[in-house]
């Protein structure tokens, strides 16, 4: 059994509550963070897809990082960026084919979804349960 972050686009209304939740969760030194999740139009009317890091199996971001700042967190199943090590070269931002490594100009950090350390706040706030974090059999 492993916990997985599950996105169900069909339930998403595009209310962008998740964005707010994400920004405020990652606020630091009085500055809100840039959201790591983006509900975008999925090509059909009223279809929204919350685009967020897929925590790939062979991630391009890890491969592209020349200083080994991105590492796998065994407990949460998320790839996290150690911002202390990160040198902000933007290699991962450019390399991610899903655009889920991004640069926060406010906090001056490269960021990506870290599943909030094992308890994604956006899932709590999603009014339609389009975002859930639950245990599934692998």
């Amino acid at each position: 059994m492993k916990s997985r972050f599950i996105v169900t686009p069909i339930l998403c209304t595009g209310c962008r509550t998740c964005e707010l939740a994400c920004s405020f969760t990652h606020a630091k030194d009085g500055k809100v963070g840039r959201s790591r999740i983006y509900p975008l139009n999925g090509g059909f009317k009223d279809l929204y897809v919350p685009v967020v890091c897929l925590q790939c199996e062979d991630p391009a971001c890890v491969k592209s990082c020349l200083v080994d700042a991105i590492y796998f967190n065994e407990n949460t199943g998320a790839y996290e960026i150690n911002t202390e090590i990160c040198v902000r070269c933007m290699a991962c931002v450019a390399a991610c084919p899903f655009g889920c490594s991004l640069f926060d100009t406010q906090q001056n950090l490269v960021i990506k979804c870290d599943l909030c350390g094992g308890d994604p706040v956006c899932a709590h706030f999603c009014p339609t349960k389009a975002l859930t974090y639950k245990s599934i059999a692998v």
Binding site: P9, L40, G42, V51, G99, C100
Partner: peptide
């Protein structure tokens, strides 16, 4: 990239 992802996942 994100827009593309949304479209294909959509």
């Amino acid at each position: 990239h994100r827009k593309e992802t949304a479209l294909s996942l959509g």
